[in-house]
């Protein structure tokens, strides 16, 4: 965890799976990729409800018939964009997190990667975090599944707390929801620059149930120093 935030950005952009998080050359993309990108940008700008299939096709420079060759409708296209972003992000996490590292450091790095991704790709973050909650029941279920996918990593922290059996079952999913809601507020307000400044406080809250507030405070101080650097 001694790398600077800059080196994390570099490592993130060089991770094969994470390349999807960086906009590619628009022209060279396949029609499907262009439609997914158009959906992402339109949904981020206008919201899911006001994004139409006609607009997606026009922005992606494909015919309507081409759209329907790939997707049954708007929802399917939206879900494909969601799934692609989430799986790319998951691969990036897998590539950058070292399970051999101490658990609190994995959490610190995981949160940092998350904030880095949101800053680098706010449109994709909006799609996954904001729009998915207002795009129908299937999308909402995917959003919930995304939160739940974080829970096992957080739950590993229970081994640090001798009274862990007392902790509520739903603690980890709730914590993930709280962290994501904090970021959601910034995305809705369009305030994504400097998100990393939130890292120490996010880390403090996340670690406290497991390692206690004193250890969590030390980790937050270290994160603070890293972010400031």
């Amino acid at each position: 965890m001694s790398e600077s935030s800059r080196s994390l950005s570099e490592r993130l952009s060089k991770t094969p799976a994470a390349r999807h998080l960086v906009p590619r050359d628009f022209v060279s993309q396949s029609q499907r990729e262009r439609m997914l990108l158009a959906t992402t940008e339109l949904v981020a700008e206008r919201g899911y409800q006001k994004t139409t299939i006609e607009l997606i096709a026009k922005t992606a420079r494909v015919a309507l018939v081409t759209f329907y060759e790939h997707f049954a409708g708007k929802e399917e296209c939206f879900l494909a964009a969601f799934d692609e972003t989430v799986s790319a992000a998951a691969e990036a996490f897998d590539g950058l997190l070292d399970p051999q590292q101490p658990w609190p450091e994995q959490i610190a790095l995981g949160l940092e990667i998350f904030l880095e991704m949101v800053e680098a790709e706010p449109a994709r973050a909006r799609l996954c975090i904001v729009a998915s909650q207002a795009a129908g029941t299937v999308a909402l279920a995917r959003y919930q599944a995304m939160l739940e996918s974080v829970a096992p990593k957080l739950r590993e922290g229970r081994e640090f707390n001798p009274r862990a059996s007392r902790l509520p079952d739903g603690l980890e999913v709730a914590l993930a929801g709280g962290l994501v809601w904090l970021i959601q507020q910034r995305l809705v307000a369009g305030e994504v620059d400097g998100l990393k400044a939130l890292l120490p406080e996010m880390l403090q809250v996340t670690l406290t149930p497991y390692v206690g507030e004193v250890e969590a405070g030390r980790a937050a101080d270290a994160a603070q120093a890293r972010v400031a650097a």
Binding site: L147, P168, G170, V173, A174, L175, G177, G178, L179, V180, W181, L182, Q185, L198, E201, M202, Q204, V205
Partner: peptide, 18 residues
């Protein structure tokens, strides 16, 4: 900061919603 309260609020709302 207020961010801490926002994380806690989001967590509590999520637990209730579940």
């Amino acid at each position: 900061s207020r961010c801490t309260a926002e994380i806690a609020a989001g967590s509590i709302y999520g637990a209730i919603a579940t």
